[in-house]
Design a protein around this nucleic acid. Structure first.
Lengths: 341, 341
DNA sequence: TTCGCTTAGTTATACGTATTACTAAAGCAA
DNA sequence: TTGCTTTAGTAATACGTATAACTAAGCGAA
C-alpha cells in the first residue's frame, strides 16, 4: 500500500522511461541531466527524450534532493505576511533568485518564538539551500546551527553587525540614524512633545534609540509608549492611550513602523483630530499605502534589500562560498516628507 | 565529494544515532516515529531518544518524503503577494493547516502564464501534498493533471463551478452578484455615468458581468476601461484616461479590485478632485487599507476563504478523500459602505 | 594475432527513512 | 525434554535519482 490513494496513477519515473525506451535507468538520468552525453548517441538520446515527454515525466524532487543534497530553493522567513513591508522584499528576492534557478518559498513566523524555532527546524530538515530571514526572538547562538550545518543565512537587520566567521550575512539600513533624522525633522517643525509608539520586539528598539538620543540632545524628554505587535490595532491602541492623557498630550507621534503609524492615524481621526494640524504623525518603512495616505515616513529600499540578500545567498551557495566570513551590507534610507507632519 | 561543502559537518542521521546507542537503524526509526513500540523496551527507548536529542537529530525531509510520498506541506499559489488581499487568505489557511500538521508555502506567479505553468511543474515534482490556488491563465484541462496525479486542488474562484469527478474543489463568493449590488448602490446614490476599471485577467470578468447587467437593466450604458494588472499604477492610469475625456466624464468609478480603486483615488486626488463630491469611487475586496481610506467596497471573507480551502484540502488528504467529486463552496460577501461613495 | 581505443551503453551503489519479515534468546508449561 | 510464546530486537528492502565504475562489441594499428 502506497502513501497515495490507488485511485491516483503513480507519476512516471526514470525507470518507466527506461523500460519504454529499451535502455537502462542510468542512461535516462544521463540524458535528462547533461546537455552532452558522450556515451549516448543522438538517436538514443532523442528517443529517450521523446519517451520522457510522451509520458509527461517530471523529476521527483524529494529523490533528487536526497541524492544531491540541493533543493534549489531559497526560503524567506518573515514575521508577518500581512505587513505590506515584506512583499516588496520578497519581490526583490525573486528577481535575483529566479534567473539563478532558485525557487523562493515564504515561511511566516507570526513573530512568535515557537514559530521561529519551527522555521529553524524546517530548514534543518534540508528543505531549502539558504534563507533570508527576520527573526524577532532568536539570536546568533540559536541561528549558528544553520551556518554550521551548511545553510547560509542572510538576516534583515536593523544595524551594522561585526563580521563573524560563520556563513551569516546581513543587510540593513541604519535604523537608529534614520529614526534620528526623522526625529530631527519633527523637532525642526517646532514639535517639543513627541511620542514614539514602539512594538515589543523587532527593529523597534534601534529606532527608539535613534529617537531617544536626538530627543535628549535637544533637551527634550523621550516619551515611549509600547504595544505588543506591528499591527494597526496596536498602533490605534497606543494612540488612544496617548490621547487619554490629560495635559501633556504629544503634538507629534512617531510610529516605529508604518503599520503602527497607520493605526495611530486612524485612532486620531476617530477622535476627531486633524492631521497634521492637531497632531503630526510619522512612520517608518514607506509601505505602498504610505504614499496614498500622505504619511511622512522613512523609506527602506525593500526591493533592493531583497535583491542584495538573494545575491549574497546565491554567492554563498557556489562552491567554497561558505568559507568566507559573514558580512554586513548597508543600504541607504530616505526621508519621505509628505502631508502628515 | 558531497553536494555540501566539507566545511559543513553532515547532519546526524538515524544511522549515527543507532551507532551511538548500540542498536540498529530500524530500532531508531521505530522509536522516533511510533509512540508505542512493543518490540523496544522503555530503557532502550529512552536511551535512543536521549542520544537523538544529544546529537541534535532532525529527520531528513527529502528522505522522508521519498519514502512516504507525503510532504506534509500545502502550497498556496497566488498571483501577487504585493496585493494585500492575499495575506489574509494565507493566514486563514495557516490557521487550519498548522494544527493538522501541515506547513504552508507560498508560491507567487506574478499573474504570468509561464510562472503559473512553473507552479504546476513544481507541484508535479511532489513538493506539496495539496494546493490552494488562484490561476489567471490556466484552465481545468491544464489543472486536471494535478488531480490525476493525486494532488488535490482548491481553486479560489469567482463563481459557482459545477461539480466534477476530479479532486478539484473551489471556494468563492458570487462575484457577479456582489458587483451587481455595488452597482445598484451607486445608481441609488444618483449616479448615471458609472465607469468600471477592469484588469485583463482574473476575477475582473465576473465582476464586470454583474456590473454590466445591472447597468443595462437600469437603462444605462456600461462603460468599461481596461488596464493590464491589479496594481495601483493600472488603476491610476485608467483613471487618468477617464479624466482626460471631454464631456462624458463619469461621476462614479467602480474599481474591479481595491488596489485598482486605490490607484484611481490617487489619480483623482492628483487631478484636484474631491472624493466623493467630485467623483465617487468604489472597490472590491476590502483589503485592510480600504477602511483607513474610507473606501466603499465589497468585503470578501478572505480569512474564511483560506480556512475553508485548507479544511477542504485536509479532508481530501485523508485516506479515500480523493475519490469524492469536486465541490464548489460559496461564502457570503458584504457591502462595506464608507465615505468614498 | 594481440593490444589498445572508441562507442554505447550497463551495473552497482548511495542518499536517509519507514516498514515488513524475520530471528535469537529467554521463559514457561506440559 | 520438547514445544510454544514472548521479548527484543535485526536484516532486508524500497522509494527515485545521480554517478562512479565497469564492460561488451567493434575497429584499427603494430
Amino acid at each position: 500500500m502506497k502513501g497515495r490513494d490507488k485511485a491516483a496513477p503513480a507519476r512516471p519515473t526514470q525507470k518507466d522511461i527506461a523500460l519504454a525506451a529499451g535502455v537502462s535507468q542510468a542512461a535516462v538520468s544521463l540524458v535528462l541531466n547533461k546537455s552532452e552525453t558522450p556515451s549516448v548517441p543522438p538517436a538514443t538520446r532523442t528517443r529517450i527524450l521523446e519517451v520522457a515527454e510522451g509520458l509527461g515525466y517530471r523529476p521527483n524532487h524529494p529523490a533528487r534532493m536526497l541524492r544531491s543534497a540541493r533543493t534549489m530553493t531559497l526560503a524567506c522567513v518573515i514575521p508577518d505576511i500581512t505587513n505590506p513591508f515584506y512583499p516588496g522584499l520578497v519581490r526583490g528576492l525573486q528577481t535575483i533568485a529566479a534567473p539563478a534557478g532558485y525557487d523562493v518559498l515564504i515561511f511566516d513566523t507570526d513573530g512568535r518564538p515557537e514559530r521561529e524555532a519551527r522555521a529553524i527546524d524546517w530548514l534543518l530538515q534540508g528543505r531549502a539551500d539558504g534563507v533570508v530571514a527576520t527573526f524577532f526572538h532568536l539570536r546568533v547562538p540559536q541561528l549558528a546551527v544553520l551556518a554550521r550545518k551548511g545553510i547560509p543565512l542572510v538576516r534583515l537587520e536593523s544595524r551594522h553587525k561585526p563580521d563573524g566567521p560563520l556563513a551569516i550575512d546581513s543587510v540593513y539600513i541604519d535604523n537608529a540614524e534614520a529614526a534620528a533624522e526623522m526625529t530631527r525633522l519633527l523637532i525642526a517643525r517646532g514639535h517639543r512633545r513627541i511620542a514614539m509608539i514602539q512594538a515589543e520586539f523587532g527593529p523597534s528598539q534601534r529606532r527608539a534609540q535613534g529617537y531617544g538620543a536626538v530627543m535628549r540632545e535637544a533637551g527634550l524628554t523621550p516619551d515611549f509608549i509600547t504595544d505588543s505587535a506591528y499591527s494597526e490595532e496596536s498602533g490605534a491602541r497606543a494612540m488612544t492611550r496617548l490621547l487619554e492623557r490629560k495635559g501633556d498630550r504629544p503634538t507629534a507621534v512617531f510610529g516605529a513602523s508604518d503599520v503602527l503609524a497607520l493605526g495611530a492615524m486612524e485612532a486620531a481621526r476617530n477622535a476627531g483630530l486633524s492631521i497634521p494640524n492637531d497632531i503630526a504623525i510619522a512612520g517608518f518603512d514607506d509601505i505602498p499605502v504610505a504614499k496614498l495616505l500622505g504619511l511622512t515616513t522613512v523609506r527602506q529600499p525593500e526591493f533592493d534589500l531583497g535583491a542584495l540578500a538573494a545575491e549574497t545567498l546565491v554567492r554563498r551557495l557556489q562552491p567554497g562560498g561558505l568559507a568566507t566570513p559573514g558580512r554586513s551590507h548597508e543600504l541607504k534610507f530616505e526621508i519621505m516628507t509628505r502631508s502628515s507632519v
